[in-house]
Structures are given as structure tokens and as C-alpha cells.
Design a protein around this nucleic acid. Structure first.
Length: 548
RNA sequence: GUCCCGGUCGUCUAGUCCGGCCUAGGACCUCAGAUUUUCAUUCUGGUAACACGGGUUCGAAUCCCGUCCGGGAUACCA
């Protein structure tokens, strides 16, 4: 047999957002298609008309795009095997159903839901192992059918399952599994209105779209049995199946579409990096190697094999996702860091659509935080300074939404001291004198000029006079001393140590009130990077204010 | 009820197919220490698992059987 071009699909139903499990299924299909050099397509299973919506579709597509899962055929793309929406393929299902009806693989069923339920109850009462549809309409005479029709009953079409056929099937992940058709229903293929149900539409489309590998959640394993039989009845070879274990929630149960916090876009809106989320999800049931957890999409594709997916369910661990995000944030170039942080920092823009800015507002409001106003022109006219600022936070942030809450000391004229800062300021009785003294040291020194985002008249010129271009922050221990027209952090530190020595106090004792006065908190970048970023005038002002 | 699947540190996993290199490796979390002007990063080290019981074998996390536990399916949802 000539091996056909691998074709894999992700077939979501637009009845809710893209959740974790769906994202992972899409990812594994995508990775397998890329690894096999095949085609990855998207098919929209919108036959549940009551619950499908265009809004859900858009959210699903946005989620996939955000994760970097691109498709070769499907919505917005087209392709030679379309249409890719099942509701646009109804004629194909009708045609296949007629064929099956004619060949005796399917039959019309006139039972009402109540009758089906009654039949099931009866089987239960008999303590029958199988308690599905009682197959009453399997052998209806022409007269019986006509009578039902006269009653106004509209039939659906059921698939005639083989009576008791032992099947040995192979699954790429589960291996060989033995099942018996007696444990399965004569399932409904087509509703009376001609809209197909999942198993039927799925197979007709997998045939029509020449799908070669099906990777999907384990909840579809039994459907796979029905589908194999349908392929056979239709005279086609079935694709290779791979049923992957479910992602479990904290309670160890199947993740539900209705778990709001599993919407992929929520992770985007909370500030998680897309690559990190991708990387983390890939790890839920699959291992890159015995000793590496962080890898790129390309690296994944290079080694991905469907059979390498694990068999047991995985619980989602947000702690590890968080760590993963930090790993990615720390790998970004300074320019990337600025670009990716921007939506979380910049003053909100008006937009009818979703914007990360809007999400940021929510996040901040929820945390009870004041907005860190980073004016748009700061990005434009103080780019070097801002880059230094953010670089100082690169290893202090894992999720971008955490960033704004850390920056008020740089963007407010008089940031409010938090409890820790107040404590550090009050600890040493002489602290105020020290601070006043250090203000004088700075006044005599040559620290860079201050940039003050809070001033109404914002200077669009380079108020920093090139200081940030000359000194790359954060300061590193063994880095060569930069050439700068102003005092560098290292030089400021030297001045500080000399000052402390003159005073005859311990450096460690001085540093805490100094940080408190300057940053209004007890955390943050290196102290002398802080002085450098704040600039001469602002530092002197804050030190003298704190000394009052 | 019936059918199917699964079960290695708290969590994600490597090892299982082709028994010995496994006194079970890595990562997250956690704890201790180092570095240090805070926080963070980084580094070092520690705690922590083969669900249980029987086999087979010189030898089992790996093969077989049973038990228990967990999950999925059993829709005119997908």
C-alpha cells in the first residue's frame, strides 16, 4: 500500500470556548501533522444547532492562534476538501445515509423519546447487561412504517450494529483492545430533519477529508468502535486512532467546558505567555525528554511521536505553569520584554474589541491596585529608560499582569509607603539624618537626571541625556564598568559606601531605610540601579521628604 | 448495572514494549544552605514514589493473575 499523505484534523464543536483539553488535542494533532510532514486542518462540528454559536467559534480560533497552532485548511483558510463546517455539508450526510439505508446498514426508527426510555427501563428491569435502545424498529414492515407516517411521526436513521461481533482493534496509544459489538447501541446517525449526529458526520467527513490519523480525547474511545464499523459499512479503510487520556481537574474529574477558568483566552488575559502555556500543555501527558521540560515548538515537532503520549490522565498544575512562564520571560530579549509588557502597562486605549489593556484594568481593580500610568509617549520618547526599568524586573516577574503592581514608585510623584517600607524607615532613630546626608552626597554627585512621568508637561526630549543607552541594567557583578557621562550604579554604590563609612554605621543598616524612602517598598531592583533609574533630582526630593 | 481504560515522589513525568545498567532519574512544589543591599534570579544539598496480594524467574517498577482505587462510555451532545 502506498502511504497516503498524513492528514490530521482538530474538530471542535463551537459550543463553548477552547479549553485546556481541546487545546492539547489540537496541539498533539498539529504536532503530529508537522512531524509527519502532513496537513493539519480544522473542521467545525456545528451540528448541535442549539448550542453552537459564532462567538464560540471566534474564541476557539483566537485561542488556537494565540497558542501558535496554525492550520492549513479550514475556516478563514479554505482548502480543497471543504466546506469545513458540517452544517454546510448536509447533502453529503444525506447521501451517505441513503446508501447505508439501501444496503441495510441503517434503518428508520420511529420511536419517540418516551418509548425509547420505556424500552430502556424494561431492559434494566430484566437486569440485562446492555440497557440501550431495544431496537424495536429494526424490522418494521411497510404497513407499520406507513402507520407511523400517518401518525405524523418523522423517523431518524439508526445504524445497524452487528449483533455480537468480537473485535480486536488497535489504538496508537492504548495498544490492542478487545470489544464486542453487543455492548453497543444501534446509534442514531441522522435526526429527522437531516442534521447528522457526531459519529456519523465525523466518519463521512473523515472519509471526505482523507483523514489518516485521529488523535482525540479518550472519551471518544467507544465512539471509535462505532466509527470503525461505519467506515467498514461505507467501504473505506479507517484512519489510525489515538485516544489520549483526559486532563483532570483538581478533583480528578474530566475537565469540563463549563469550567470558566479553563478557557485558553483567560490565560492570555491573565498575562501568561503563550509559548509557556503551549509548552506546559504539551507536558500534560507527554515528555520531551527525561531531563528537559522547556522546549520550543520546533523542538517538539522534531521529536514528537503519537505513540509517545502517555496513557494516564494528568492533573493541571498552575504552579508549574507559572514557573514555566517565568522561564520564558527570562529568556526574552530586552526589546521583546518591552513589547510584550506594553499592553499591560500602557494607559488604556479605547477599543470596542478585547484588549489586554482592558484585561489589565480588571486585574488591577480586582487586586485593589492603583493603575500604574505608563503614558504612551514614555514608550516612544523614553524607550531606553523604560527598557532598563523593565529589564530590572525581568527576573522578578513570571506573569505579565504582575508587572504594573510593582512599578508605582517609578511612575508616581509621591508613592505611598507600604507597611514594610514604613517599618524600615522607623527602625533606626537616626535614619532621617542619614538620608538627609545621603541626599547631600547625591547633590554633590553626578547621577543621571530624572525622568518624571507624572509631570503634566512631559518632556519629549531625551531628559536622561543618553544615560540609559550607556548603562545597561540590571547591573551585573562581573560586567565591565560602562562608559557613561553620569555616575553609574557602581559609582553611586562607591559613594554610598564611603558615606556610610564616614558615618561609622553598617552598610546593611543604611540600605533598608534608603530603599524604603526611594521605592516606598522593601522589594525591587538593586538599590543603586534604583538610584540610577530614579535620577538625581527625584532621589534627592524623596530623601529629603522622608527626612522631614 | 454493563463495557472500556488507567494506577511510578503531593503534582507533571523518565524507565515498562525487548525483565538485570533502577540502592527508580528529571522538573514543579517544599525544606536547608551558599551568593547578596531587599525581593527575585542563580547555585548546592535534603525530604518524597514503583496501589496491594499472589505467581513466573537466578533476578520484576518492568511479564501473568486477582484485588482495590480512579477515570471514561453507555444521548435525537460532541
Amino acid at each position: 500500500m502506498i502511504h497516503p499523505t498524513p492528514r490530521l484534523r482538530f474538530a471542535p464543536s463551537p459550543t463553548g470556548p477552547l479549553h485546556l483539553g481541546g487545546a492539547r488535542t489540537a496541539m498533539y494533532n498539529w504536532a503530529a501533522a508537522r512531524a509527519l510532514g502532513g496537513t493539519f486542518l480544522l473542521r467545525i462540528e456545528d451540528t448541535d444547532q442549539a448550542r453552537s454559536s459564532d462567538a464560540s467559534l471566534q474564541i476557539i480560533l483566537a485561542g488556537l492562534r494565540w497558542l501558535g497552532i496554525d492550520w492549513d485548511e479550514g475556516p478563514e483558510k479554505g482548502g480543497a476538501f471543504g466546506p469545513y463546517f458540517q452544517m454546510q455539508r448536509l447533502h453529503l450526510y444525506r447521501q451517505a445515509a441513503d446508501e447505508l439505508l439501501a444496503r441495510g446498514h441503517a434503518y428508520h426508527c420511529y420511536c419517540t423519546p418516551a418509548e425509547i426510555e420505556a424500552g430502556r427501563k424494561e431492559l434494566e428491569a430484566q437486569k440485562a447487561g446492555f440497557t440501550g435502545y431495544n431496537r424495536r424498529c429494526r424490522a418494521l414492515s411497510a404497513d407499520q412504517r406507513a402507520a407511523f407516517e400517518r401518525e405524523g411521526r418523522r423517523p431518524n436513521v439508526r445504524f445497524r450494529m452487528p449483533d455480537a461481533r468480537a473485535m480486536k482493534i488497535h489504538d496508537l496509544i492504548l495498544g490492542d483492545v478487545e470489544v464486542n459489538t453487543r455492548d453497543f447501541d444501534d446509534w442514531v446517525m441522522l435526526r429527522p430533519d437531516g442534521v447528522p449526529l457526531y459519529n456519523f458526520a465525523c466518519v463521512v467527513d473523515d472519509i471526505g477529508m482523507k483523514i489518516t490519523h485521529v488523535v482525540r480525547g479518550n472519551e471518544h474511545f467507544q465512539n471509535g468502535i462505532k466509527q470503525r464499523l461505519l467506515f467498514e459499512a461505507l467501504g473505506h479503510e479507517c484512519p489510525l486512532y489515538a485516544h489520549i487520556p483526559l486532563i483532570l481537574n483538581k478533583d480528578g474529574k474530566k475537565l469540563s467546558k463549563r469550567d470558566a477558568d479553563t478557557n485558553m483566552l483567560d490565560y492570555r488575559d491573565k498575562g501568561f505567555a503563550a509559548e509557556a502555556v503551549f509548552n506546559y500543555i504539551a507536558l500534560l501527558g507527554w515528555g520531551f525528554s527525561g531531563d528537559r521540560d522547556v522546549f520550543t515548538r520546533d523542538e517538539m515537532v522534531a521529536v514528537f511521536k503519537i505513540g509517545g503520549i502517555g496513557k494516564s490522565g494528568a492533573k493541571f498544575d498552575e504552579e508549574k505553569l507559572r514557573w514555566m512562564c517565568g522561564e520564558y520571560v527570562r529568556r526574552w530579549s530586552p526589546a521583546d520584554l518591552v513589547a510584550r509588557s506594553r499592553p499591560w502597562l500602557e494607559a488604556p486605549v479605547t477599543s470596542a474589541q478585547f484588549s489586554p489593556q482592558a484585561a489589565r484594568l480588571h486585574a488591577l481593580a480586582a487586586a485593589g491596585l492603583e493603575l500604574p500610568p505608563v503614558p504612551a509617549h514614555t514608550f516612544q520618547f523614553q524607550a531606553a529608560w523604560l527598557q532598563n526599568v523593565l529589564a530590572c524586573y525581568q527576573e522578578r516577574v513570571a506573569i505579565l499582569s504582575e508587572l504594573p503592581g510593582k512599578l508605582p514608585w517609578l511612575f508616581q510623584q509621591a508613592p505611598t509607603l507600604d507597611a514594610a517600607a514604613q517599618k524600615n524607615l522607623a527602625k533606626e532613630p537616626a535614619a532621617k539624618d542619614w538620608l538627609r546626608g545621603f541626599a547631600d552626597v547625591l547633590a554633590a554627585g553626578n547621577a543621571p537626571p530624572s525622568y518624571r512621568p507624572w509631570l503634566p508637561e512631559l518632556d519629549k526630549a531625551d531628559v536622561r541625556k543618553g544615560a540609559d543607552a550607556a548603562v545597561v541594567l540590571p547591573s551585573k557583578k562581573d560586567a565591565p564598568e560602562p562608559v557613561c557621562a553620569f555616575d553609574t550604579p557602581a559609582q553611586i554604590e562607591a559613594q554610598c559606601r564611603a558615606f556610610v563609612e564616614r558615618l561609622g554605621i553598617k552598610f546593611g543598616n543604611f540600605v533598608h531605610p534608603l530603599r524604603a524612602a526611594l521605592t516606598a517598598t522593601d522589594k525591587g531592583p538593586g538599590l543603586f540601579d534604583v538610584v540610577f533609574l530614579l535620577g538625581k533630582e527625584t532621589c534627592i526630593e524623596r530623601l529629603r521628604a522622608a527626612a522631614l
